[in-house]
Computed example of a mutant assay.
Amino acid sequence: MIDVRVPAEYDQGHLPGAINVPLQEIRQHLAGLDRELHHLIYRRSSAAAFLLSQDGLRSSVLTDGLKDVPSAYLIR
């Protein structure tokens, strides 16, 4: 999972196992992403999914971001 929010937002709560790669830095991190994985992106995710697909990476978007995730499931 990739959380593309800025670090301060990520620190407010994120899904377990999610890595923080701010959207403005996503291109810099493409080479380091595992090409065998299917990446789940949330928050500002459509733009990030587009950038990953342009680089040949598979991804899906968590449509409503963290809106419907109970806060008990988030790491703070």
Rank of each mutant, 00 (worst) to 15 (best):
S60M: 04
D55T: 00
L33Q: 05
L62E: 02
S53Y: 01
S45A: 15
L51A: 07
P22F: 08
V61W: 05
P70M: 09
R5M: 07
V61H: 06
F50W: 12
S60R: 09
I75V: 15
R35F: 04
K67W: 05
R5G: 05
D68I: 01
L37H: 12
A48N: 04
L51W: 11
D3Q: 05
L40G: 01
L57Y: 05
D11W: 02
Q54I: 01
A49I: 10
G13Y: 09
I75A: 05
A31Q: 11
I75N: 05
S46W: 11
S53C: 04
Q12I: 06
Y10K: 06
D11H: 12
L51M: 15
A18Q: 10
D34G: 06
H38M: 04
I2A: 02
N20D: 10
I41A: 04
L51V: 11
L52V: 07
R58F: 03
A8H: 07
L37C: 12
G13P: 11
L40Y: 09
R35H: 04
P22D: 07
G13T: 07
Q54E: 15
G65R: 08
V21D: 01
L40P: 00
H29F: 06
V69G: 05
G65Y: 04
V69E: 09
V61Q: 08
V6T: 12
L23G: 03
Q12H: 10
Y10L: 10
A72M: 05
L40T: 08
P7S: 10
Y10Q: 05
G56W: 06
H14P: 14
R44T: 05
L66K: 04
I41F: 06
V6A: 10
H14K: 13
R35Q: 13
L62W: 13
S71P: 00
I41L: 15
